[in-house]
Simulated scan of single mutants.
Amino acid sequence: MKSTLLTFVFALSLMVCKAQDNRPGPQLPPETGETFKVGLAGYTFVKFDLDKTLETLKALDVHYLCIKDFHLPMNSTDAEIAEFHEKLKAHDITGYAVGPIYMKSKEEIDKAFDYAKRVGVKLIVGVPNVELLPYVDQKVKEYDFKFAIHLHGPDIEIYQDADDVWNHTKDLDPRIGMCLDIGHDTRNGKDPVADMEKYHTRVFDMHIKDVTGPTKQGYSLEVGRGIIDFPAMVRMIRKVGYTGVCSLEHERNMDNPFMGIGESLGYFRGVIETTKE
């Protein structure tokens, strides 16, 4: 399956290049017409400035970015936030959420919600201490935001997988859910396809990546090279009617991630194309 898909992706790339040589308009990406969107997680560009980040998204025809605070600090002025959005607009990019943001106190939660409001988004990807969840519940009701807890696999003690997030949030406001990081979910021994089906009403964001194994020793690599079943994942995303963003979070060769980002997006978009009914 993977070799066939890679052949298709290569052929599709050649067809796109040829079409762009002969047609006046741009080639539409394979996710056009889907209920979900394809984006990039800001953490992918932790070693690069905003200009390089936006240049990369534009070159890849990606229009959605989850904003990290190293690109837009949480203490930014309203003028700086306006300038940030002008840069995004010039590249036809929407900043759809902020985070992940770690929160270890009520004051940090207050700061995160105020930041999201001033940035103009209604989705926070966060990692609050467990004992602070009742306070997050209050803030969600106050602001009418969605709050997606980022799960981190076996690397930290809290929110290791989708089951963990669900068990901590199932009795809270339904606007509190998860950022389903399919790589970390897999590294904690879980099946992200099954978890997407089980918890889809609380999946507000997704981090797309591949990993080498279902244990803590499993590491991130280019999408399509690891063990995650992406055709099954895409079919499940469609089945449950997910309407959020599938954001690639590339965590390999982060000093020079650009070839890996391109390969990963090409594979993921190839899966989208080849699994269409």
Rank of each mutant, 00 (worst) to 15 (best):
L5R: 10
I272C: 03
H152N: 13
I237N: 11
V62I: 12
V125L: 15
Y159N: 12
A11M: 03
T4H: 04
K87A: 07
P192D: 02
L54Y: 10
A90P: 07
D205R: 09
V127M: 14
A97R: 15
G213F: 07
A232M: 05
A162L: 00
F8M: 02
V136W: 04
L65K: 05
V9Q: 03
L5V: 04
V136M: 06
N75L: 07
A59F: 10
L248C: 04
N129V: 12
H63S: 02
H150G: 10
R235I: 00
T56F: 10
R23P: 02
E108M: 13
V9R: 01
E80H: 09
L6V: 15
P26T: 14
N167I: 08
D205Y: 13
G25N: 14
E197S: 07
T169S: 03
F268E: 02
A59C: 11
D164W: 02
N75M: 06
N256R: 05
K68C: 02
L28E: 13
E83T: 13
Y143F: 11
F70Y: 00
R225K: 15
K146H: 12
F70L: 04
R202Y: 01
L151A: 10
E263T: 04
G153R: 06
M15W: 11
D205E: 14
P73N: 09
G99R: 04
D137G: 04
V130S: 03
V119Y: 10
T215C: 09
L14Y: 00
E263N: 04
F204P: 07
L54K: 08
K209I: 05
L88H: 10
Q20E: 15
D69F: 03
D255K: 09
F258M: 04
D191P: 01
L72S: 03
Y159E: 13
R252V: 15
D164T: 07
K106T: 07
I182S: 13
I109A: 09
K47H: 09
G42V: 07
D155T: 15
T35S: 13
V9F: 02
G99Q: 08
Y135V: 02
P174W: 01
F204Q: 07
K104S: 15
V165M: 00
E131I: 00
L40N: 05
P100C: 09
D171P: 01
N129S: 15
T243L: 08
D173S: 13
G42S: 12
G153Q: 05
T56C: 09
D114Y: 01
Q160T: 15
I93K: 12
K2L: 10
R269C: 03
A116W: 07
M196N: 05
D164F: 01
V130W: 00
V211R: 00
C179P: 14
V193R: 09
L57G: 03
E131H: 07
Q27G: 08
P154D: 12
A116C: 10
Y64M: 08
K139H: 06
F268Q: 01
S105R: 02
I237G: 12
A11Q: 06
L172T: 04
E249D: 08
D51Q: 08
